[in-house]
Design a protein around this nucleic acid. Sequence first.
RNA 1: GCGCCUGUAGCUCAGUGGAUAGAGCGUUCGACUCCGACUCGAAAGGUCGCAGGUUCAACUCCUGUCAGGCGCACCA
Length: 566
Amino acid sequence: MYDAKLEVSKLLSKYAEGLNEQQLYDMLEVPPSPEMGDLALPCFKLSKHLRKPPVQIAESLAASMPKVDFIDKVEAVSGYVNIFLNRTIFVDKLLAEVLDTGKVFGSSDEGRGKNIVIDFSSPNIAKPFHIGHLRSTVIGNALYRMFKFMGYNCIGINYLGDWGTQFGKLIVAYKKWGDEDKVRKDLVKELVSLYVRFHEEAESDPSLEDEARYWFAQLEKGNEEALALWRWFVDISLEEYAKIYDVLGVKFDLFQGEAFFNDKMEPVVNELKAKGLLVESEGAMIVDLEDEDMPPCLILKSDGSTLYATRDITAAIYRKNTFDFYKCIYVTGVSQSLHFKQVFKVIEKMGYDWHKDLHHVPFGTVSIGGEKLATRTGKVILLEDLLTQAISKTAAIIEEKNADLPNKEEVACQMGVGAVIFSDLFSNRIKDVSFSWDEILNFDGETGPYVQYTHARACSVLRKAGGVELKAFDASLLKSDEEYSLAKTLADFPSKVKQALDELEPSIITRYLVDVAHDFNRFYHVHSILVEDEALRTSRLALTQAAKTVLKSGLELIGLSAPERV
RNA sequence: GCGCCUGUAGCUCAGUGGAUAGAGCGUUCGACUCCGACUCGAAAGGUCGCAGGUUCAACUCCUGUCAGGCGCACCA
């Protein structure tokens, strides 16, 4: 891959006293405005060492630089050495590479032979899939695709919330008020209304709580009636979630919920005990983390039953043994930050050096009008409703603008869903989100449909051009600001993917796509692509093809479709 | 009370210690005989929460402080 910055730092290292290539590479930066060049070296740090004022250093450095083909101009401006690259060479190298590598442009094989476990989505069984679950799902999915792009072998695990006292409540409610046909018909909706009813009735009749505890205990003991009902609830829920995952284009390699670990926790508890980590406190068994400035990690309740942390520690060990992961990533809300810090610390204390490969990827909280989402009070927006609305709005726009589109429904779905995913991946994941119908259904500006539309527009031009041998392009014809700036942005793709992965932050790709779309649209607006002059046409088409390639790869990395016509 | 996170334009947000702090929405003005106008250009809009400190240089690092969010023992 052509890295202009690397070439420049190689060259500079011959003239900058006491600085090696790597140091110069790290010091080189992109000036705030293109009039100041493509790369700049601030000379302030050299001042002390060289005992000369920065302005003088910059000037003598600029003067000593020899004439080379890939640099057009070197200027010294108030302490900076500004470097202007040769546009033709830059564009030539970039286009040649993108045309040559195509959809693998920006990818690598750095992950070959390494397993990445990504624990994401993980909805609670018998509860509706609402917009609160969306974030884990789309962030996890984007990370999955990004790691895969870099050659890693990914294992996406849906760690379903399929165990816990709520099943005792649900069994009681179903036995008292449930109706099999109704459940078969309305699925999770009916399970939720049973759950809600349980809480309403329990207000006036506390004995219901005891019954629920009894039935959960039965479930844990393996009572067949309880187990059968539990399995049925799980199956119903999974069936419904499957539809949503299908619409979102999300796949898992494994559905392995909490229940899976029920019979695997005891050995881990024993191990904790054997390693002298387990101590009794207020009747419960804990791992004390006071020396780590953390509250204790609860392992067993005073009645001897297990807890969230017990299960997560068990699951981590199981995953390490099963997949020998290079990294294991948990995509959950920020409210679980302390929990994961404790769990990771306990694993470290158990003597497992792979604790450093465990990563919590937190994201901010979703609220509606300042209130938190809660299934119990009905304060939720179902993802299904959101997607339906987004799709029908897109369908209406297509009907208005492009009624002759052949596969309208499919495209409406791709763009409607795309809008929702894109908006969720647009800001840094740690930011809290206040849900608003207006905002999420507004497709103007920096949105998924904008990027998808731009991609389709590029496709349209290429289609119209017919089969052209793009590799015959002449980069010297692409020297305008708009063309060069688009090429520079496209060249950033590999480093953006890398950065997004380093920071486990999909929004870096999302924002980058907006930059690409914007640069392409400006280029498109200022320059005609399908011009008479064949050489010019071929060259601009090659640039269009490169933009299309990057847009498509980028969209797919964050889990969006890139339809050719919209 | 303690801990973590967040505070940047009216709103939603970008911003690897470096040059004049940037987008989108909204507002105002402008560009369609033209490859798809879900487009493009321009204007207006800022004490980067506040106060200290480090530095040649701070939105960025450190300390303090204020505001909001989240968490802090038997839920997950």
